[in-house]
């Protein structure tokens, strides 16, 4: 079976083939024979070339989260058929970008106002959760179109905080 795996900026084609009691898993044609034992649902013991690793996989539809060696990897996994028929999703992202709350918390400071030009990575909102204050950065460059929250407001995870409009093309405006 062949899968398309997107991780960050990278995209891989992965083929999973049974080989005796093991699996030969090829990433972009690069083979690796793995003795895999599922020790708990979604938790695997891998032996590759005698090396022992533990890896855990969670799945929600085509979104996968893999944990290995203390690191977490988020990826999108589709089988070949779905991957080939899916529409390119990134093409449509030209509308306004939104900064959303990554967790429930309290808005303690606003660092930009409507009309401000902001750079990607610039702090826009300071949120407090678990007693810690965290600066939330602009997801892209642009102009602040709307600030949806006020200082002192409790927000839920995923709630829109700031909407950014794409920066005006060079030469336009005063």
């Amino acid at each position: 079976m062949k899968y398309n795996v997107k991780i960050g900026e990278h995209e891989h084609w992965v083929e999973v083939l049974p080989e005796g009691s093991n699996w030969n898993i090829l990433v972009d044609g690069e083979p690796a024979v793995i003795d895999a034992a599922e020790i708990a649902p979604g938790a695997y013991s891998f032996l590759t070339d005698g090396r022992s690793r533990e890896v855990a996989v969670d799945r929600n539809g085509d979104q996968f989260r893999v944990r290995l060696g203390g690191a977490t990897y988020d990826m999108i996994v589709m089988d070949e058929v779905h991957a080939r028929t899916r529409r390119p999703e990134r093409a449509a992202v030209s509308g306004p970008a939104q900064l959303k709350a990554p967790m429930p918390g309290l808005v303690v400071a606003l660092k930009a106002a409507v009309g401000d030009a902001v750079e990607e990575g610039q702090a826009l909102v300071v949120m407090e959760a678990m007693k810690m204050q965290n600066e939330l950065a602009a997801p892209g460059s642009g102009r602040v179109e709307k600030v949806h929250v006020v200082i002192g407001q409790s927000v839920e995870s995923g709630q829109a905080l700031v909407t950014l409009a794409a920066p005006a093309p060079a030469g336009e405006g005063s």
Partner: peptide, 17 residues
């Protein structure tokens, strides 16, 4: 190397589940 192994694990999991 770890990232490649994580990718392999995801594909295997997709196959098994």
């Amino acid at each position: 190397e770890d990232e490649a192994l994580a990718v392999r694990a995801a594909a295997l999991h997709a196959l098994l589940h």
